[in-house]
Every structure is written in C-alpha cells, then in structure tokens.
Nucleic acid binder design. Structure first.
Lengths: 371, 371
DNA sequence: CATCAGTGGGAATGCGCTTTCCCAACTCGC
DNA sequence: GCGAGTTGGGAAAGCGCATTCCCACTGATG
C-alpha cells in the first residue's frame, strides 16, 4: 500500500505540509481561499488519500467501533449489526467485526485486538454466560475490558454485564427486558388454556436463555399454573430441532385418549428464541405432528426473515436494530446513562402457531396475523 | 485511548525500545533468553498492548480486510460475511464492514475509506449494476478501485466485475454461475410441465437479477417453451410481496374454467432470489391462493434461515459462505487465479413449492424434502 | 597474539500526519 | 504615521513503532 502523501501534495501546491493538512482536514484554522484551492487541486491531481493510520496515530483516535457477535450469519446478530452499522455511520466511524461463537477466550482476544487498533468503542452483542467452564475465560475477558476502559475506551454490552466486570468509567449495559417479556408471553399463553407447557431452553448459564426461562416460569406461576418442564439444548436451530424430535416422541406416546379429563391437552412449547422454535417446529412436522393442532409453539426475538414462516410464529418482538443502534450511541457517549436508563421495550406478538384449534377445548381465538 | 507504550516497557525492562520491539513481535532477530523474559514480564505488568496503528504505519500494512455489502442483515450477505470473516481469521486479519444499499456512490466512499485505512484487501459482495442512473457512480467507483489497486491493494468482487473497471493487477472476480444454474432450474421445472412461467425479477440492470432471468429464459427455450413473462420489482422481500399481490390477482382472474385444453394450467413463478420468493409466496397466501396447488414458486440462493419454510421452497443452492471465503482468499493471493479459475458451483434443489399436485395433470412427482 | 567473522544490543531514522509554536506581514485606531 | 493587535503561513516536534545501521564484545583462526 503505497500512496501519495500529504507532503507530496504540499510540495506540488507549493505550500508547507502544515498548510496542506489544514485545508485538507477540517482544522480550526482555515488557510486563505487561493491557497486552499491550490492545495485541493494538487490533492485531486495526485489522487491523495489521507492515511487514516497516521492520522489516528497523531490524533490518538481511530474512528473505529469494534463489534463482537457470536455469528454474523445468525439473523439475530445480523439485525443488531445493522443497527450498529447505522449508528456508526452517523458517528462517521467504521465498524470492525469479530465473531467469537460465544467463547469468552475468543472474546477476550477480540477485545485485545480492538484495543490494539485503538477502537474508540466496543459493542458486545453476544449473550453473556455464567457457565462454570466459562469462569476463567470470563474473568480474563473482564480484565481485558477493564484495561480497555481504563485506557479511555468505551464499552457497551447488550443484555447483561460481563461476569466479573467491575463497572468502571466507560462501561455501559443496554438492558433487554427478556425476563419481563417472557413472563408476559407466558401470561398471554396461559389465558384460558390448560395445556402442558414445555420450555426448550439453551444451556444453563446462558443469561439470555436463563432470563427467558425464568420469566416464562414466573408468568406461568402468576397465572396459577405449575412450572413448565425444561428441556435444555443448543441455543440454535439444530438444538431446537433435536429437542423437537424428543418432544414429538413424547407427544405421540401420550395420546389424547389417555387423558382422564375427557378432552385433549395439547403441549405448548416455548423455545427461548425464534430459530430454536423453527427448528422444533420442523422436527414436529417431520414427525407427522401439526402445529397448532397437535402442539403449539412460541419463540422469542421476532426475527424478520422468519415473519413469513407458516404457521406464523408467536413470539416476542424485540427491536434488534434499535438495540444495536442504542448500544453504539451509548458507547459514543451520545446517550446520557441517567437520562435514559432503559428504553428498550418489546411486545408479545401472538400469531397462528399458538392458536386454539381444538373444538373440544371450547376456545378458538382468532388472532390476527400480520400481512 | 491512552495506553502504555513500547518505550515504557523497554525502560521498565532496562533495555532499548529496539530490543523490546524485537522480543514482543516476531522479528528476524531474537534477543537472548534472559532479556526476552525481562521484557515479557515488563510488558505483562504494564498491560502493554501494541498500537496496531503505529505498527501499521511503520510496516505500511494494516491487517485489515474491507467488506462491502448492501445490507448486513440480509441473510444472503450475512452468509457471505460469515465466510469472509472466517477466511480473515485464517489470515490473522480483521474485517472492516461497510454497508451501502448497493449505491455506487456509497461504495466508492467505502472503498476510499478502506484505502485510507490502508486495508490490505477489499471484498465487494454487493451485486453490480449497469442501470443508467448508476453510470456515473460506477465510473467513479471503478476509478477509486483502480487507484486502490495501483497503490498495491487487492480487490475481490463477487459475481461480476465493477462496470468500467479496467482489470489491473490485484483485481479479482469470483464468478458465480447464476445464469447456468438458473437455466438448469428452468430445465428441471420444465420437465413434463406446461405451466405458465412468470419471472419476478429485480430492477433491470442489476447483474445478479439479469443473469438469473436470462438463464431461466434460456433454460425454458432449450426445453422448447416460450419465454416467461417478466415482472420487475424491488430485489427484496417487499418487492416479491408486491409482485405476488399483482400475480395473485391475475391468477384468480383467469380461472381454470377458462382453459380450453380441458385441464388446469398453473402459474409457475421464478423469483430471482429466495427472499423475493418468500415475499411472493406470502402475498399469494394472503390472497387465498395455496402453493403448490394454485401456483408453484421457486427462488434462488437457498438461504439457510428459510430452509424450514413451508411449503419448502424450491431453489438453487449457492455455497454463500464458500463464496465469501474464496473471495477473501483470492484477494489475499492465496488462490492462484489461473490455477483455479472458478470453483464456485451450486445445484438445483427442488422441494415442495414446485411439486406437481393436480391429478388432472396426471403427474405428481414426490420430491424429497430435506430434514 | 593479532585479526576476523559472528553475535547481541542500542542509537537513530522514518512511516504520514497533527499541532504547537513562532514569525512575517498586514490592518486598525489614535 | 506608528505601535498594538491580528492574520496566515511555515518550522518542528512528536504520535508509537519497525528497522537499518552501527558498535562493543565474543570466540575462533592463522
């Protein structure tokens, strides 16, 4: 990467590098009209492109925002990334991407790499975890973040704080009301239902999953229902599929006929995110079960690409893009912490996948499906 | 962003900055054991993180890969981005993201920004366009890329070369066999069918769309069928939806009864990408039409998140992740141009959305659906 | 014992830019 | 018309690091 330099431009324009610098970048001092014109012409003719590395070095700031996600191809993260990207653009910065599959060790490495590049701020979108095997990794990640913040860096993390992070200056958390929303979802599903509730959760210790599980159980309890059974599996589509296969076997093994109350009890499945729900639905289908006839299912996130899924998936809408945007703005100091402590809200969106369909149940709410 | 510097480490270790630099980064010369240990200890205790900007400036290379996509939340680009990210990791580089919505002016700007950051290579994933309104923008983009290449940069573009780019040193294209695969799809769909074929295409001038349209028509022609009508719309889900609404009206307006041949002619819709197909399918459904009973539909890309869509979407599988990987490797000079001119292959994947279902047609191939 | 290649460390230069400081020329007011 | 204030440009000192060159010292060789 060779390219013409500022001094070359300056020489061609017959001015000093200082002057060239002043006209080519918005300095406080603006040289005279004629000189400015000469310099600009020289720059143009030389195809001058400022060296951002050198600029960064001189100004000690890079115009970079580091973004950490588990997997950029996961629609959840992709949506957040879009928001981050958008906010970055507003700020005139560029985003530096790192994918870590949720491994704290990789995340630590990514933070170090961002720090090395002197990123102005870091946004961590990946769900936090408190799993025992992540303990050491989390500690090191927290230490790395701490160091980054001490050096003046800004960190925003989505959902939960990193385990062990002492909230120093420059450390922000964008809270996501996972628990409350899950409770709300449970409440809505519990209305005039007495289905068997089952939760397909991610690995224990994954905060996002745990919050949603806890919230759902709370909602059930508030409705006077017993806690749902929890099936733990991978936090992705294939995890949902596996769980779905297992559940399908059980649903088929306990036919309605066995029910003493005289009418069918359906299984209502709550998968802690949409892609898991889709996986589970696919599994049920492949086992010959129909939704919502033989079982109902709900997810979480309201992934855009899944909106046209059939049967339309009941879920909890989360403003993912806004979450990304807000995290990015917060890390840039554009949102006062105290001014707006938490502005992320979602809402339960019931669609066909949890509709009541059994005549014997005596209830059949027709819920609107969008578009 | 302040942080401890190399000289601080050197001073603490009681050596010169030169020596510290040699031990802390894989230099050709390796200082003695004891000294190295002292330096490493000093660095550790100071929490030293090398300043990548300064390193880049000194070595004139940045370890950065620029990635240009239309929209990172679009699953097509997200999948490619995953491949790019993966390959970047292999190379020990980081990826810098830019989204442009396909506007050449924005793309030019992104290239300039990457050049300013002295990115080692640039991967352009967005589909190229030859629309008249993009003419000027394309010229400027080509010029910018040219300059970047002349300065030693490496560019890889997915699909088609940028319009007007003179293929200088360091300019690579990863060809995607859109046309051939579309022809193949048409051929498969044309087998023992005499449906009315309709193509939902993107804006004229968008290469990816045009290639697929052209290929599909060729496949139809090769099968002895007349060319399909083309409906042009936006290259995204909502475009597909709009087109679907229009088509639904027509399908409903021309009932089977009107057919002189005595049996029903279905409309077979080819949408030039999966999300458009999904949009169209949603529109048909909302108009009360069923797929594949009242119309069949096929897409292109085989987006992972859409695999569980119902009815399962016939499409053309493209190894998106591999495309991203390969583009990135090529730009890094890891793949000889001549050695492997084109290794991207896809395959037609027929699923339920194009199944024959009308008894009157006398044909009802049961095609396997995956999972 | 003197010379020489070889080794291991440091001084110094430069990567491309920003920014402070400095100085010449100029404008203004009395 | 002259000093004070102002303007506009340049010189130079870094920003943090890699790297070339140089030097002192070692052990081997004739």
């Amino acid at each position: 990467m060779v390219a013409s330099t500022l001094s070359e431009v300056a020489r061609l324009a017959g001015v000093s590098p200082a002057t060239a610098s002043r006209v080519l970048n918005g300095s406080a001092r603006t040289p005279g009209q004629d000189i400015a014109e000469r310099v600009r012409a020289a720059a143009e003719s030389l195809g001058y492109i400022p060296n951002a590395q050198a600029q960064g070095l001189a100004k000690s700031s890079s115009g970079l925002i580091g973004l950490i996600v588990h997997d950029i191809a996961d629609p959840y993260f992709a949506a957040i990334a879009r928001g981050v990207q958008e906010a970055a653009r507003e700020q005139g910065r560029m985003v530096l991407l790192a994918t870590t599959a949720g491994a704290p060790a990789d995340e630590r490495e990514a933070v170090a790499a961002f720090a090395a590049r002197r990123a102005d701020s870091i946004v961590i979108a990946g769900s936090r975890s408190a799993r025992p095997e992540d303990g050491e990794g989390n500690t090191e990640l927290a230490a790395e973040l701490d160091r980054y913040c001490r050096n003046g860096g800004q960190v925003a993390v989505v959902g939960h704080a990193v385990v062990g992070a002492s909230s120093t200056e420059g450390y922000h958390v964008v809270p996501v009301p996972n628990e409350d929303l899950a409770a709300e979802l449970a409440a809505e599903l519990a209305v005039s239902r007495d289905d068997d509730f089952v939760i397909i959760g991610g690995p224990a210790g994954l905060f996002t999953s745990d919050d949603r599980v806890r919230g759902f159980q709370r909602g059930l309890a508030d409705a006077g229902l017993p806690p749902a059974e929890i099936v733990r599996t991978g936090f992705n589509r294939s995890g949902g599929f596996d769980a779905g296969v297992a559940l399908a076997a059980r649903i088929k093994a306990s036919p309605e006929a066995g029910d003493t109350s005289g009418y069918a009890k359906r299984t209502c499945i709550f998968a802690v995110n949409d892609v898991m729900a889709i996986g589970a639905a696919a599994a049920l289908r492949s086992e010959g079960l129909r939704i919502p006839r033989d079982a109902t299912i709900a997810g979480f996130d309201d992934i855009e690409t899944l909106r046209d899924f059939r049967p339309a998936l009941s879920t909890v809408h989360l403003p993912l893009e806004e979450i990304g945007r807000q995290a990015t703005r917060r890390a840039a100091g554009m949102i006062g912490e105290e001014a707006a402590p938490s502005t992320i809200t979602g809402h339960v969106t019931l669609r066909r996948s949890t509709e009541g369909v059994l005549p014997s149940e005596g209830i059949s709410r027709m819920l609107p499906t969008d578009s």
